[in-house]
Design a protein around this nucleic acid. Structure first.
Lengths: 219, 219
DNA sequence: ATGCCCCTTGTACGTCGTACAGTTGTCGGA
DNA sequence: TCCGACAACTGTACGACGTACAAGGGGCAT
């Protein structure tokens, strides 16, 4: 993996960290591992990033700025809101291991502020007060991240486990449940284990969020 | 902190870990720290738990089983659903640092299965197919956990930072924003920094979720 | 060639989870 | 009264982690 022909770059490190996180999870993203991956000493990282948190912030910022916001059209607010939220999930979905890093950077990264600005504007247009706008907007951002985060079987933002093994254990456990005691869980068991990652799941719950915003508009 | 008069117990350890997490965050919950807190050698923990993950699972299970489900009344499904979701948030809210641990244990812990069963049953009653029931139910559980997790300024499930310092930095950053470029963000800035932890926030977004479910019922 | 500055290396420390083996306290049957 | 057996705990050690600190090299303008 040593590619020590050129100098190291912030962006190169971030890129490397992203593919690493996608392939092996966030817990594989280690200063030492990143250094080794680039044929370099661990301490070399610290020239490009103050500390590991700064590196993770870099990852988050990179992910946030990959959101392709639709042009600020003139359609009804709920349609526009849905488009923006969808653009957000679409960008984050390919990197579920990193989803948890995003939240704390949304109001810091430029792209995140742009995103927040658009969402808050639409909520204002929908008739929410400034305070409710903040509350709903915050929750929407959190929900989208949740939506895009990893499979519940592996657990979002909980790393350090063998995903396959956990998934198998969960399946085995669900199969031992008494259908008399948990009829609905047993009936939904295959879907519960499977539903994440399906386009259906995202579309349906994006609708849920937008319809929810519409539903609480007057109150 | 050494209270070595009685033998150690799984429950005692879990209890200790919970107060520790509430006071100093999940990153303070360490095998060594827990041992020291109980006046015992680190390795003593491994008699009661196979490894640290088992300990965290114990924490999650304890938290899940603290949910006080309302009696299965006979009101309309959406009212009952809201009551259940509210009971969930109420139980988890006091322990935001642990919220992230819950998800992967919901379909394993008995109390979690009970919770899932009730939610899925109500969704079935609302007219969802088995598959959509699973999708919506999964998302609802995730959202409630998200809702109950820590302040976005400190970042849910992201530990290892000084919360106060981060909050101050965020506030400072928001105050430097150009109101021309981000009018809505600037207008909502105080609320954005503050809204979490307010009862208002939880009530409003619980409504959002329930109304959302109602909104997507027929489709 | 020389000096400077950007980038990298080398070494070391403290913390973490935990494998492995040994030690104690307690208690029921002889 | 003794005695093993088993439950609960101790002691030591290892490898991985983040990172402080100081020293080194290598390309560029002079």
């Amino acid at each position: 993996m040593a590619k020590r022909n050129v100098r190291l770059t912030r962006d190169a490190i971030v890129e490397c960290a992203m593919t690493l996180a996608d392939a092996e999870g966030l817990e594989a993203v280690t200063i030492r591992r990143l250094a080794q991956e680039n044929g370099v000493t661990p301490m070399a990282m610290y020239w490009h990033f103050n500390d590991k948190d700064a590196l993770l912030d870099g990852l988050a910022d990179h992910l946030i700025s990959s959101v392709k916001l639709p042009a600020p059209g003139s359609g009804p607010w709920d349609v526009q809101l849905r488009e923006i939220l969808e653009a957000f999930v679409v960008a984050v979905r390919p990197h579920p291991a990193l989803a948890g890093l995003i939240l704390r950077r949304i109001l810091i990264a430029d792209a995140g502020l742009e995103l927040a600005e658009r969402v808050l504007a639409l909520l204002g247009e929908a008739g929410f007060t400034a305070e409710k706008t903040a509350e709903v907007g915050t929750f929407l951002m959190c929900s989208i991240i949740t939506l895009a985060a990893a499979d519940p079987a592996t657990g979002p933002h909980v790393e350090g486990r063998d995903a396959d093994e956990l998934h198998r254990r969960k399946r085995a456990h669900l199969e031992t449940l008494s259908p008399a005691r948990y009829p609905n869980v047993v009936a939904a068991a295959p879907a519960l284990l499977n539903c994440r990652g399906q386009d259906d799941y995202f579309a349906l719950n994006l609708d849920l969020l937008v319809q929810g915003v519409r539903g609480i508009r007057r109150s």
